[in-house]
């Protein structure tokens, strides 16, 4: 057992876990943030995507100890109080989700995508950038619409490299 501490959604957390504990299991079980999901064993579905130190990563493909000392943002930390993040709002407005299981990873991926592209996205880019996120319900049609709309609304300056 190792005591693993990190900042999750702005809150300092700490838990004793085995070194083999994946970050996603740490989030779901050790600190009970169950919004991050596991949909595959091969790092392909993206249901587990969170941000570690500002970058989208697959929390099923990272040990919790690797993230020790890092700052992690999960789907639970995206909204500001009752105010939804623009990507969350766009997913709702455009019916970008059905069963909701892939949705947290989709939204975290979309937020990262918009940040990296400074909001400058087109349909082909969005579809390509969703390569690591699998949805079985929506056929992606409305997810793509939601991301494009959120990107347009956010009009962010290009992310610094």
């Amino acid at each position: 057992m190792t005591t693993v501490s990190m900042t999750v959604n702005g809150r300092q957390v700490s838990a004793d876990v085995e070194d083999r504990t994946l970050l996603v299991d740490y989030l779901r079980n050790a600190i009970s943030l169950t919004g991050t999901h596991v949909g595959c064993d091969t790092s392909q579905c993206g249901a587990c995507v969170v941000h570690v130190d500002g970058r989208a990563v697959k929390s099923c493909t990272m040990l919790a100890v690797q993230a020790a000392g890092s700052s992690v943002t999960t789907i639970e930390g995206l909204a500001t109080g009752d105010e939804l993040h623009p990507v969350q709002a766009a997913f709702r407005e455009h019916h970008g989700l059905q069963c909701g299981f892939c949705t947290p990873g989709m939204i975290m991926t979309a937020v990262d995508m918009i940040r990296r592209h400074g909001g400058q996205l087109d349909e082909a880019t969005v579809r390509h950038e969703l390569e690591g996120n699998i949805c079985r319900c929506t056929g992606y049609h409305n997810i793509v619409k939601a991301i494009l709309d959120a990107a347009a609304k956010m009009q962010m300056p290009a992310a610094a490299e």
Binding site: N29, S32, G35, L78, R92, L97, P104
Partner: peptide, 16 residues
């Protein structure tokens, strides 16, 4: 949708 987009869905594996 609100619970799904904020990570508050309650799926079976979330039961503890």
């Amino acid at each position: 949708d609100k619970r799904f987009i904020t990570g508050k869905g309650k799926y079976t594996d979330d039961v503890k």
